[in-house]
């Protein structure tokens, strides 16, 4: 029996969170000094020209009025258009999302493919030389500054062999060239991601391995492989999946540095550009999108765990 009450409450909660975060975005943007009129006029801004353009753009209104207007539009699902190019924000963001999504996906794949086995291996044999090697290695992944790793990854091949990855092309356009660029770029993030996944996998596996039913399984005479894969891993998957989905959501907003180093036209670069040019609608659209992803992922995870494990509801 699914607790509809709980889900309804959770939905309401998520909506409130969304509203708070997106409003905060609006106010943070409005305290940043300087506005778009100056940016659009560039070198030739004079006070008179700025005043005229501000009026034309409607940014001379008080913050409160603009906020109400913006919120009204947001609730109607209208994010507006870029102050610069008038391009609808939904279109602008989805154009840039491809890149970031691919980056986040590849990084996550690398993290899972290498991180989970590494974590399991060290959990099955805690204290072994493998464990002793894998644990600090995973910490190294977390410790290495991504901008440093990224620069080295891009510049060393260039210095040594005059190699540079090809320029960005969409995945669907030319998959091979796309991957030649995206794989090293996502590896920078994947490295750190791998580290956190292997740590969580190790911890969860350690706990699961000591559960009674695992002992029972061993007692039944099942092989280690069967126990690990059929029983232990399956149960360890929930925390790993939780981490992966939360990290994935966070990654969508955390690829800025890598995008910058590898010249990828992604969401992060767009966000920074919009902050610099004071293209408020775009920044707000970006934050609203990120918050939406975060809230949704959390909501789904929450509801899913509740449905799967009714005990949690009463905790």
């Amino acid at each position: 029996m699914v607790a509809w009450d709980y889900i309804a409450k959770r939905l309401l909660f998520a909506f409130a969170t969304f509203l708070i975060a997106s409003s905060a975005a609006f106010f943070i943007m409005s305290i940043i000094p300087g506005d778009i009129a100056y940016r659009m006029l560039g070198d030739f801004a004079t006070p008179k020209a700025v005043a005229e353009l501000r009026q034309e753009l409607g940014v001379d209104q008080p913050v409160a009025i603009r906020y109400v207007e913006w919120l009204g539009n947001l609730l109607r699902g209208d994010l507006g258009g870029s102050a610069y190019s008038q391009e609808p924000i939904v279109a602008l963001l989805s154009r840039k999302l491809d890149v970031t999504l691919e980056l986040a996906f590849l990084a996550t794949m690398m993290g899972v493919v290498f991180g989970v086995p590494a974590g399991m291996l060290s959990a099955i044999r805690p204290g072994s030389w493998l464990d002793a090697f894998l644990r600090p290695a995973s910490i190294l992944g977390l410790a290495a500054p991504s901008f440093w790793v990224g620069l080295l990854l891009l510049l060393l091949p260039s210095t040594l062999w005059n190699y540079a990855p090809p320029r960005f092309e969409p995945l669907l356009g030319s998959p091979l060239r796309n991957l030649q660029l995206m794989v090293p770029a996502s590896a920078v993030i994947g490295f750190a991601f791998m580290a956190s996944i292997s740590r969580v996998s190790r911890t969860t596996m350690l706990e699961v391995v000591r559960e009674d039913y695992i002992r029972t399984a061993f007692a039944k005479g099942l092989s280690e492989r069967t126990v690990v894969f059929r029983h232990a891993l399956r149960n360890a998957l929930i925390p790993i999946l939780t981490l992966v989905s939360l990290q994935f959501a966070a990654l969508l907003g955390g690829t800025v540095i890598v995008e910058q180093i590898f010249s990828l036209p992604g969401l992060g670069q767009q966000a920074i550009a919009a902050i610099n040019t004071r293209d408020y609608p775009v920044v707000q659209g970006f934050v609203v999108f990120m918050v939406l992803v975060y809230v949704t992922v959390n909501l789904v995870l929450d509801v899913a765990t509740t449905v799967l494990d009714p005990r949690i509801r009463f905790a």
Partner: peptide, 21 residues
């Protein structure tokens, strides 16, 4: 709810916006 809202913000972007401000 407030903490969730704060966490929902993409951290680096928030920091960039604040330092810019």
């Amino acid at each position: 709810m407030l903490l969730d809202a704060m966490m929902a913000f993409p951290g680096l972007i928030l920091a960039i916006a604040l330092v810019t401000a």
